[in-house]
């Protein structure tokens, strides 16, 4: 703001303050006229050359800004955010969803088989006990059955992975859906429509990308059971 404009503005504010403090219900017309004149001076600017310079600088800055937005729009357009939002991100999310579903199904099948084996082991144990075989042979068979049962426990323990990886992948899917929403906003704001259909090569790239998203190795980031036990010992 120029010095003259600042002086005019201060004069306007001063007049307004006077009017407010005067407490009169009806403001004399000459006071209103004086105020209007001051405001007009402020907007029209009695210091025309300075205002012109100010306007020139402002227009210059606005020009820079417009070119920057234009360049950004061009670069964003080259990135094909429409494809990203409409095809790549949803497809990557779907791939991750599919991984969760497939591992869940596979784990279910492993558990089905384990339960079948356990049923057979229980039956076998009963039959050998009722068979009247010699104690040493019976003990040997029971020991083997116990070993198999311990291995079954190991399989159940290992099946934990499905729940943990599933939860991690769903977190990644949530993040991707948020990115998708943000890209959609960008597409709308910048008017960046979809550039072209994703060709087969790009589709393969998407699949490759999705396959890479197997979840980061997070060991050491959360607490281990020992750390949790320490906290529990201190709190319980």
């Amino acid at each position: 703001m120029t010095e003259q404009a600042a002086l005019t503005r201060n004069a306007v504010l001063e007049q307004l303050e006077k009017l407010e403090k005067s407490g009169v219900e009806h403001v004399p017309i000459e006071h209103v006229r004086a105020l209007v004149n001051l405001i007009r001076d402020f907007f029209e600017g009695n210091d025309a050359p300075a205002t012109a310079r100010f306007d020139e600088e402002l227009y210059g800055e606005l020009g820079h800004l417009a070119r920057f937005i234009n360049d950004a729009q061009k670069h964003l357009s080259e990135l094909a955010p429409g494809d990203l939002q409409e095809e790549k991100l949803p497809e990557a999310s779907d791939q991750l969803d599919a991984i969760v579903k497939m591992t869940e199904q596979a784990t279910g099948r492993i558990m089905d088989s384990c339960e079948q084996v356990e049923g057979l082991l229980t039956g076998l144990r009963e039959r050998v006990r009722e068979s009247g075989m010699d104690p040493d042979t019976l003990a040997g068979i029971e020991s083997t059955v116990d070993d198999i049962s311990a291995y079954m426990t190991g399989i159940y323990e290992a099946c934990n992975f499905q729940d943990v990886t599933g939860q991690r992948i769903m977190k990644v899917v949530d993040v991707m859906r948020e990115i998708e929403r943000q890209v959609l906003r960008m597409v709308i704001v910048f008017g960046l429509r979809k550039q072209n259909k994703v060709d087969e090569k790009k589709r393969q790239e998407i699949t490759k990308d999705a396959e890479l998203l197997n979840g980061p190795q997070l060991e050491g980031k959360g607490l281990a059971q020992d750390d949790i036990d320490d906290i529990l010992d201190a709190l319980l």
């Binding site: 159940y156 323990e157 729940d163 059971q225 949790i228 529990l232």
Partner: peptide
Amino acid sequence: YIVKPFNA
């Protein structure tokens, strides 16, 4: 409190 994954 047990943190997943856990064992038997």
